[in-house]
């Protein structure tokens, strides 16, 4: 077996790449990448889903282009090529949002252009797309994008329900519950403010770490 072959057999295939992105290597909860949109736009579920959708689009396109060009890119020029590719697709995503979802585009404001500096995208270009074919690269992008969507949606659901008492803007919890003149429940404004983002993210990372530790303990216990 030649050296290049043995190197490529060590890299995960398309299926593995896709599944890894969802939870085992979840970009936000396991790799702690892409913190800026995770903290900034998750106070409503609609904002979280739009952001994850735009990021996934850029991730798929950038992985696809990088993978197709992987044999042409000069190693010392690669970051320049990645950034150029990512910036082009982010601008396209930004213009499309402004044209077709103007209210959401206004709400997300500077966070859409900021996808350019989202480390998830550049790390996937470096780790996967610059070494593997377009099929694997697209599966990887969809997995990582899916993992990002899952995390952002989880944050969005928790923060919007507790902070506003709504989901996708529809009311699911009463604004205020009063029993005998005493306020028993009121929407937690802190959850829609920045501290709520940190609290929610911390709890989610804690839960995922706990699950992983349990899994590890079970595996070593079984041997």
């Amino acid at each position: 077996m030649s050296e290049t072959n043995s190197a490529s057999t060590q890299l995960p295939g398309a299926g593995r790449r896709f599944l890894n992105g969802l939870l085992p290597e979840n970009p936000t909860l396991r790799q702690l990448l892409g913190m800026c949109p995770t903290l900034a736009v998750t106070n409503t579920l609609a904002g979280a889903v739009t952001m994850a959708g735009a990021t996934t689009f850029v991730l798929v396109m950038s992985n696809c282009v990088t993978s197709l060009l992987r044999n042409l890119i000069k190693p010392h020029m690669r970051i320049l090529v990645y950034t150029l590719t990512i910036a082009a697709f982010v601008t396209i995503a930004d213009r499309f949002l402004a044209a077709f979802l103007p209210t959401m585009s206004e709400k997300l404001g500077p966070y859409v252009p900021l996808i350019v500096v989202n480390c998830i995208i550049i790390s996937r270009a470096e780790i996967c797309a610059s070494r593997q074919g377009p099929g694997v690269a697209i599966a990887d992008a969809l997995g990582m994008g899916g993992g990002f969507l899952l995390t952002l949606s989880a944050m969005g659901v928790i923060r919007e329900v507790i902070g506003f008492g709504t989901l996708f803007g529809l009311r699911v919890l009463p604004e205020q519950v009063t029993v005998g003149g005493v306020v028993m429940w009121k929407a937690w404004t802190i959850m829609i403010l920045p501290p709520g983002a940190f609290l929610t993210l911390g709890v989610l990372i804690g839960v995922v770490n706990w699950v992983q530790m349990k899994k590890k303990a079970r595996q070593s216990g079984g041997q």
């Binding site: 060009l69 042409l72 890119i73 000069k74 020029m77 320049l80 090529v81 150029l84 590719t85 910036a87 082009a88 601008t91 396209i92 213009r95 499309f96 402004a98 044209a99 077709f100 103007p102």
Partner: peptide
């Protein structure tokens, strides 16, 4: 490669802007 990509992406962005600017 960088020059070709820059020109290609530039043209693509100009096309997108041209198509969407009236709607925006």
């Amino acid at each position: 490669l960088v020059i070709v990509l820059a020109v290609g992406f530039g043209a693509a962005l100009a096309g997108v802007e041209h198509a969407l600017a009236p709607r925006i």
